[in-house]
């Protein structure tokens, strides 16, 4: 479904991705773990073509996305939904208009049909009657769920989640984890989750990949990762810092 091949990216002489390779299968939920600032979000943004790599490629259903024209890329992106870390809702629009955004832009659907779909998507993420509110009136957890509803509106085949549980309380994190699991089980969407929350990683992941110093150093099922012998991965999942000292980067 999605192949990431030798992806490299440098920001101001800081090598963020250094030949990352990863193969994401159709219908699975792939969790990418790694340290904050370690390039997980950058990797995710390359998958949907929000960033251009210095080298390497991403192939989605046989199409090399960095070679596509803007129109072709736009068409391809309709198959994707993305949940941003801060939800990235359009704050000039209401919740309903946010969720309906892609429907109004890209489908010939009538107003009633759109409202129906909006209600359905909001219900799927456990929200009701918030269509007329502005994003600023919502709590962080609600905003994330609206962001997810917006990502779901076009019935995408792939959903990219950027730190879905960061910045929400543990119970809301559990609600979001369950949602991701549900989408995977019921709608059979492919998921790519970027997180450093190991509770979430074990709960939602079919497979987990560890990104370290710009490379994917291990890929495996949650059980395999739990029982890994790789010292870097072990230290990360158990939450032990290098040499027991706080390393500031």
């Amino acid at each position: 479904m999605i192949e990431i091949i030798n992806l490299s990216k440098t920001f101001n002489s800081h090598q963020v991705l250094d030949g990352a390779n990863l193969d994401i299968r159709d219908g699975e939920t792939m969790v990418i773990i790694g340290r904050s600032g370690g390039g997980k979000t950058v990797l995710l943004k390359h998958i949907i073509g929000l960033m251009q790599p210095d080298a390497g490629q991403v192939i989605v259903e046989g199409e090399e996305i960095f070679r596509l024209t803007p129109e072709e890329l736009g068409r391809l992106r309709l198959k994707f939904g993305m949940l941003f870390q801060g939800a990235a809702l359009f704050d000039s629009l209401t919740v309903g208009e946010n969720v309906a955004f892609a429907l109004r832009e890209h489908t010939p659907m009538g107003e009633e049909e759109i409202q129906e779909r909006v209600r359905e998507c909001l219900e799927l993420v456990g929200l009701k009657g918030v269509e007329r509110q502005k994003p600023a009136e919502l709590s962080g957890g609600m905003r994330k769920r609206v962001g997810l509803a917006r990502a779901l509106a076009m019935r995408p085949r792939v959903i990219l989640y950027d730190e879905p549980t960061t910045g929400v309380d543990p119970m809301m994190a559990d609600v979001i984890n369950r949602l991701i699991k549900q989408l995977h089980d019921r709608l059979k969407v492919t998921g790519v989750v970027v997180t450093h929350d190991m509770v979430s990683a074990y709960k939602v992941g079919d497979r987990i990949a560890m990104l370290h110093e710009g490379k994917i150093i291990q890929v495996g099922t949650p059980e395999e990762i739990r029982g890994t012998s790789n010292p870097v991965v072990r230290r990360f999942i158990l939450g032990i810092s290098d040499n027991g000292e706080a390393k500031v980067s």
Binding site: K45, L50, R77, M82, E105, A151
Partner: peptide, 17 residues
């Protein structure tokens, strides 16, 4: 503000220029 809160990126992901 839209740029730094990733709203511009969000527009891209919704296939809108």
């Amino acid at each position: 503000t839209m740029r730094v809160t990733e709203q511009i990126d969000a527009l891209h992901t919704l296939s809108t220029d």
